[in-house]
Write a protein that binds this DNA or RNA. Sequence first.
RNA 1: GCGGGAGUGCCGGAGUGGUCAAACGGGCUAGGUUGAGGGCCUAGUGGCUUAGUGCCUGCGAGGGUUCGAACCCCUUCUCCCGCACCA
Length: 958
Amino acid sequence: MDDLNKIAHKWQKKWAEKKLFEAKPDKKKEKFFMTVPYPYISGSLHIGHARVVTEADVYTRFQRMLGKNVLYPMAFHISGTPVLGISLAIEARDEKTIKLYKGYVKQYEKDDKKVEKIMKSFQDPKKIVEFFIPKMINEFKTLGLSVDWRRSYTSGDIEHQALVEWQFKEYQKKGYLVQGNYPILFSKTLNNAVGEDDIKEGDTDPVDIQEFTLIKFKIDDSYLMAATLRPETMYGQTNMWIHPDVNYVKAEVDGENWIISQECAEKLKYQNKKVKEIKKINGKDLLGKFCFAPFVERKILILPSVHCDPNIGTGIVTSVPSDAPFDYIALRELQNSEHMCEKYGLNWEEVKKIELIPIIKSKGYGDFPAVEICKKLGIKTLEQHDKIAKATQEIYKVGFHTGIMIDTCGPYKGKKVEDAKEGMKKQLLKEKRADILYETSRPALSRDGGEVIVATLDKQWFLDFNAKGWKPKAMKLLKNLELWPEKYRKQFEDVFDWLDKRPCARKRGLGTKIPFDQEWIIESLSDSTIYMSLYPINHIIRKHKIKKEQLTSEFFNYIFDSKGKPADVEKKTKISKKILEEMNKEWNYWYPFDQRHTFTAHLSNHLSFMIFAHASAFKEKYWPKRVSFHGMVMSEGDKMSKSKGNVITLVDVNEKFGADSFRAFMCNSTSVESSFNWESDKVLIMKKHLVILYETLKKIQSHKGKSDDYKKYTSFVSKTERAIKNAKKSLEEMNLRDYSTLVLYGMHNNYRQLLNKGLSGKELQSINDYVGNKWATMLMPLVPHLAEELWSTDKKNKGFVSTQEWPKHNEKLISEKAEYQDDIVDNLRADIISVLHLAKLKQAKKLELFIPEEWKYAFFKKLKQQMEKTRNIGEIIKACMVKGHEKDVGKMVPMLVKNPSRMPKIVISQKEELKALEESKTFIEKEFKTKVVIIQAEKSKEHKAKQAMPGKPAILVA
RNA sequence: GCGGGAGUGCCGGAGUGGUCAAACGGGCUAGGUUGAGGGCCUAGUGGCUUAGUGCCUGCGAGGGUUCGAACCCCUUCUCCCGCACCA
């Protein structure tokens, strides 16, 4: 541990002792309520978590400096399946999980026996939460956050559960909840729904749910059920495919006789179908028969093909050779082989008669895309399985996005494939000529090795964002919501348009049960949309040990909406009137939150739901005020991941880099809305810079003396006052990058430049007295620990810098002229160096500096004015003409208009320029170790003297 | 595919119609300071040219609008993010 860390821990302890960040309502002060997403419990916190809370902290600390009463709270999210998954994995002795979590536990617990005991306790998910939350709080504290930790809770705590129950009862009343069918991934062995985490390789090769349309083809007393992902191609059907060697079944499904594969019959049982197998049917026995096809409305021939997979769909495929490469190749093989036809007892002539039907016109393809692509890729036989799959994908993609149905497609003629697909599917379903089957996108196994299939839930709960009146309200909220940066508004609007029904409950996981349907647990995104409303009151609930049964709807309606008389609510809830009123008051004081700082990726889910939920739950005056976005977090140029080994935890930050270094590096390395890339070596460079800054300021703070000497250094003072002003402006806009650049580098460079001027001891003390506290205070939001230490170094200072106000700047002391006069000297210095270099002189014997003739100053001033108005050279020459210098003016104007960069920033007078140079004469003489003579051009015959321009003295070296 | 965003030195990134494109930081080179190292100080870091502070090139590519474009418009290429039940 080094000095910076000692300092950090020292002040963190002091802040906690003094309860510095515990917020209390104060009617006299304007309040500011900041929120960030509560982190999910999953082992160690890392810099991804740290970004959002730190940025919010910098901004929050600044708000305090503006005299506002600030609330910055935090809670923890435990809902959903991951924690449960960890628990189950540990119970099942999954070695990877055990190793990982043992690693985490060992960070805090060195005794092996205790580690084992803790690990064993993790079979109960609650214990995982209980173990990690205090650790997480401690880790967050090492960042120096100004959080009021009294108000923390988890989404599993009673207050939160009661709140969510209230929210869902309200949804139910308003008709925002609906029930319906919904397909989910399901493990046969676990007899339960499974998520990505529960599926083998589910994270690297995700499993999707595909929707097959099962189309009924009448044959005798039954339907031959063909499965397709492309119902829009039905106008191109030419025949039916059956695998000759597969055993199909005839089964009674919801009262109809279906012919499907054995495997399919099994799956249908999980998808709300009553399935009763009647008999087995050999594939061969169906060949050569006819079945009746919809859309083409005629009988088609049943032919053999080995590309029918009984594991996919129904194992029966209707053939569209114009657009499906598999069908095309299979058909061609059969048509070219009398032998095969004979083998299956088919009439070869009849098979040969089958012709392709064109149906879709896609970009870059003619009537028969399947034929074209097979030719292009050189596909000749069904054995080229991979190539055919690739061709199918290509045709599907191009057809879906660019295809238009042609005139063979009846009423669907001219429609986009995208629309025809939906239209034809709907039509078939409506006419009861089709059904739906869900399939996994690939064969999948759950972690225990059981088969994963798709099951449908028939009473799945959905949030209906299109329920009457909800969306317009959310839109209104959005309209009044400030967005930083504003450019995300359009994306929000698009998301709102597209939001429809969303499943909001699951059968497993941690969380809150739907109060009126206890089989369901409210899904983890839906249960965290209004949780910020607990922050204002949670510490009071805790203090009075109020029980969940007391947190009724009457309670929330009173707190949030002042509904009902406190006395009545007291009767109902057994919470005393006084406490109720206190909570109602405090809630009204803090709510709504003024800002939510969060990751851009949350826009389309969490943030959108948060807005809808607030629009539903609260009156307009409690709607959120502002959302600010931050960008991604990367580490050493890569996405952070365990496998890459580049995860930087908060323990790492605390031990190896320090909170202030992290804060300063993060804020300075990128703008808030851009990606933040952690680079360890750069962070260490920042740490070095902070040490230098610390040493500089330590000296400043301990060598002060009151006098007016500092006023002489007008440029330094001007730049300092300007920095106070600009840093504040940047902070107000949450432009943390510009702010940090100013306090870390701008102020530092300004001070260093001053030191070069060779000040006397007394002058320096005066400067230090002027700038020391200002600078230390300005550093506080960014590097609060360092700032506290520096603040306390000046023994006259009292209290904490964390509670100081932002220094006030004096506009009168900001002087462009003063800064410019300083710049002239700086530029002159640089010019002298370059002239010496050009003259190939190491050491000058004499330096002559020529100040331009007086008329040039007036001329430049006029020229500047004119150029504001016009760029017409003729006009400008006329307007700026100087008697006696017609030739010079005629030459200079075109050159300067063409290249305005050669004009000085501001034009001062000859007298002022002379004064500036005279004042710095000693300084220049010292640096160049030679005598300096300053001459007005009017008084010299030297040819060089004529070249002098305002702001650019001519230089003659010898 | 749809929606959103972005392309600027060796690198991270400033600059969104005119007063130096590259502020600020990092890297590299040379010199100074220092017992050594670190740090610090100074200069250089697209090309050409120079007793002078100048010229040319240059903000992914191509075209356009304008007295003037990194910035506005059109075309094009490349990259990143989101696309729903996952926290």
